[in-house]
Simulated assay, not measured.
Amino acid sequence: MDKLIAIMNKVGIPFAYDHFAEGESPEPPFICYLLPGSDNFAADGRVYYKINDVNIELYTDTKDLSAEQKLEDVLDKYGIFYEKSETWIDSEKLYEVLYQFEM
């Protein structure tokens, strides 16, 4: 997933795969990204073309439109079609803006 790492580096917001180590989480905004599954294309009983599901979770302590715009600008630049949703995580006192796409 070198392309995904390159994309994440262009955003300019601290990121980690799945989670940050205990006690090492930066101040918001920060990003966690996951590859929760796949939707591979098969041919002749084999994986012909690999397609990974990608979740990018942007965490902020307030609604941060500029952080969202930074991320969306990079995804748009790479021509990535994404779905976006948002939730408040009361136990963490953080907003999570979730971007889902395939790569």
Rank of each mutant, 00 (worst) to 15 (best):
K77Q: 01
F81P: 06
P14I: 12
A16T: 05
N40Q: 11
L4T: 15
L71T: 15
G12H: 08
N55S: 10
L4F: 05
G37P: 00
S25K: 10
E27Y: 00
A21F: 01
L35Y: 09
L94Y: 01
K50F: 01
T60G: 10
L75C: 10
V74N: 11
W88V: 07
Q69D: 08
M8H: 06
Y78L: 11
N40S: 14
K77D: 01
Y49P: 02
M1I: 05
K70E: 14
N9S: 10
L75I: 03
K93Q: 07
E68M: 12
T60R: 04
H19Y: 11
L4K: 06
I5A: 00
F81E: 01
I5G: 00
S38F: 08
K63L: 03
A67S: 12
F15M: 07
K93M: 13
P36S: 03
V47Q: 08
L58S: 02
Y78A: 09
R46P: 00
K3Y: 04
F15C: 12
E24R: 15
L58R: 00
G79W: 07
A6E: 04
S25P: 03
D18S: 04
G37F: 02
M8Y: 00
L4C: 04
L58I: 02
Y82F: 02
F30M: 09
L98Q: 14
V74L: 07
I13K: 04
Y95V: 10
I80P: 11
I13E: 01
L71G: 12
V97N: 09
E22D: 02
Y48P: 01
M103W: 07
A6S: 09
G79S: 15
S38E: 12
Y17V: 11
V47K: 03
Q100N: 01
M8C: 07
L75S: 05
S25R: 13
L75N: 06
K84P: 11
I51N: 00
Y95S: 12
N40T: 08
E92S: 08
P28Q: 10
Y49K: 04
Y17N: 09
K3G: 00
F101Q: 00
E92I: 14
N40E: 15
Y33H: 04
D18G: 00
L98R: 13
R46V: 11
M103C: 13
L65T: 14
T62E: 10
E22Q: 13
I89C: 07
L65Q: 10
S91K: 09
P26F: 13
T62K: 14
A16C: 13
D76V: 07
D76W: 01
M103P: 13
K50T: 01
S25A: 12
D53G: 13
A67K: 06
E24L: 02
A21K: 06
S91Y: 14
G45V: 13
D53K: 11
L4S: 04
D39Q: 15
Y99N: 05
Y99D: 03
N9G: 06
Y78I: 04
M8E: 05
I13Q: 12
L35A: 09
N55R: 04
D64C: 15
Q100Y: 12
D18Y: 00
K50V: 03
D61W: 10
S38Q: 05
V97T: 14
D53N: 03
L71W: 04
A6V: 06
L71A: 06
P36I: 03
G79K: 05
H19I: 07
P29T: 06
K84G: 03
I13L: 02
Y82A: 03
